[in-house]
């Protein structure tokens, strides 16, 4: 947790510039912005259905406690808050947390951002209705240990969303060779092939932690429309939904 005691104007200016960067749909994080509608749509649909909420209600998530792991600049936390959820965003990077805080303040949104890890939150006994685990597992050191900690964070009757990239040749070709080296959508080195995760490697640990897999779907890119869509093809990007029984 970073509690700033002295405010450094140059630092604030730097964070502010980074917040602009995080939130610029045409900038450095363009791939994430492009990805947003499909992720948000998936979360909206399944959370509304699971918790019997009216998806048309602008405050459909009121009263639900959300955790966004690896929240970055707050690209998911802000929409969830706008939909009425009480949101905690965590990221191991204090810089990201500072950026996210600054942007939430500018957006007039109340979000509890903390520079901490899922393991520490689990140890502290925090529990949530919905845990968002989006584009994180491919970056952690020990997937089963990490997922076990994440599972503990889900209340009985709660949900966990996981989104990541499959470890297939197709994913290697598209997510690493094409996206990082050819199209330069992502900085080279963002993903490494050995760290990519197969669906079974997520479903296994989650099952052992007492969670059941509710739904899984692939996410594919349509280059003609420059848009991501849900699909049955899970060879590349995919999303999983797990629930903890009541």
């Amino acid at each position: 947790m970073t509690t700033k005691t002295t405010v450094d104007d140059a630092e604030v200016a730097r964070f502010s510039a980074m917040a602009d960067e995080w939130w610029d749909p045409t900038g450095k994080f363009r791939p994430l912005h492009k990805f947003s509608p499909v992720r948000l749509g998936y979360i909206k649909e399944h959370v509304s259905a699971h918790f019997a909420r009216n998806a048309e209600d602008p405050a459909a998530f009121k009263g639900l406690r959300f955790l966004d792991i690896g929240c970055g600049g707050g690209l998911l936390c802000e929409p969830m808050t706008r939909l009425g959820a009480e949101v905690i965003g965590v990221d191991p990077s204090p810089v990201n947390i500072e950026v996210a805080r600054l942007h939430a303040e500018r957006s007039g949104l109340q979000i509890d951002y903390r520079a901490t890890t899922a393991e520490d939150l689990a140890a502290a006994g925090e529990r949530f209705d919905v845990v968002l685990n989006m584009e994180v597992v491919e970056h952690v050191a020990d997937v089963p240990v990490y997922l076990a900690a994440c599972a503990q964070l889900v209340k009985p009757g709660g949900l966990m969303f996981v989104a990541t990239i499959n470890r297939t040749l197709k994913a290697y070709a598209l997510a690493i060779v094409a996206a990082e080296r050819v199209l330069r959508w992502l900085p080279p080195g963002t993903h490494s092939y050995e760290k990519l995760v197969k669906p079974a490697e997520i479903e296994g640990p989650l099952g052992e932690a007492g969670m059941t897999i509710v739904e899984r779907c692939g996410v594919t890119y349509n280059p003609l429309l420059d848009r991501w869509n849900r699909s049955r093809d899970m060879d590349m990007n995919y999303m999983l939904l797990a629930a903890r029984p009541k």
Partner: peptide, 21 residues
């Protein structure tokens, strides 16, 4: 409408770039 449904800012970059596209 899509931005509101997804909890996004209706005047924000995501909604505006969707309109422009």
């Amino acid at each position: 409408e899509r931005a509101r449904s997804n909890g996004q800012d209706i005047g924000g970059g995501a909604a505006l770039s969707a309109y422009a596209a």
